[in-house]
C-alpha cells in the first residue's frame, strides 16, 4: 500500500511538474512532399444569357455580353494559399478563376479573345511570371460546337 501511494504521489508530482513547465515558444517542424502544378485537359461549354450581362473588363470599363464561354481545366492547382497560381493561355493571363473538384474553371466573355487564343499553349506561373508551359494547346475551334454549360460557372439571374 505504501509503495502504491509512493507511485501515485510520484505520478502526481511528475504530472504537476509537467503542468507547471512553461509552454515552449518554439515549434517542431514537419515535412512535405513535392507536387507539381499540372494541367491535363480542358473542356469548353457555352452559356447564353437571357438578357445582356454587364461586366467590368480588365480596363475597368463596363461592357455588355450576350453569352459566355466556360473553360474547365483539369489538373492539380495546389492547395488554397495566399499566392494564387496564375494560368496563361499564350501570353494571356486568366484574370479570374475558381476551383472545381478536379481543377479550375474560368470564363471568356469576348468572342474575339477566344479566337485570339486559338492554338496557344497553356502555362502556369506565379505573380505574373510563367513557370512552365505545357504541351497542351487551347484549340476552341476544334471543339466547336460547344456544349451548353451546366452547373458550376453558369451565371444565372
Amino acid at each position: 500500500m505504501k509503495g502504491i501511494t509512493n507511485i501515485s504521489v510520484n505520478i502526481f508530482i511528475a504530472a504537476l511538474v509537467l503542468f507547471m513547465l512553461p509552454l515552449p515558444i518554439f515549434a517542431q517542424q514537419g515535412e512535405r512532399k513535392f507536387k507539381n502544378i499540372s494541367i491535363s485537359s480542358y473542356e469548353i461549354s457555352v452559356h447564353e444569357f437571357e438578357k445582356p450581362f454587364m461586366k467590368i473588363d480588365a480596363k475597368g470599363t463596363k461592357r455588355s455580353y450576350t453569352k459566355v464561354y466556360i473553360i474547365n481545366l483539369k489538373g492539380d492547382f495546389g492547395e488554397p494559399s495566399a499566392i494564387p497560381v496564375d494560368i496563361f493561355i499564350g501570353d494571356y493571363k486568366v484574370p479570374e478563376y475558381g476551383g472545381t473538384k478536379d481543377g479550375i474553371y474560368f470564363r471568356i466573355y469576348d468572342e474575339k479573345l477566344l479566337e485570339d487564343l486559338e492554338n496557344k499553349q497553356f502555362s502556369y506561373g506565379f505573380q505574373n511570371q510563367k513557370v512552365k508551359t505545357f504541351k497542351l494547346r487551347f484549340t476552341p475551334n476544334a471543339l466547336r460546337p460547344f456544349k451548353k454549360a451546366e452547373g458550376i460557372g453558369v451565371i444565372s439571374f
Binding site: E96, G98, G153, I155, F157
Partner: peptide, 17 residues
C-alpha cells in the same frame, strides 16, 4: 459583388450576387 468576382470555388455554396 458579381461584377468584381464571379468565379467562386466549387465548395462555396453562395452565389456572388
Amino acid at each position: 459583388v458579381s461584377s468584381y468576382f464571379n468565379s467562386p470555388d466549387y465548395r462555396v455554396t453562395e452565389t456572388m450576387d
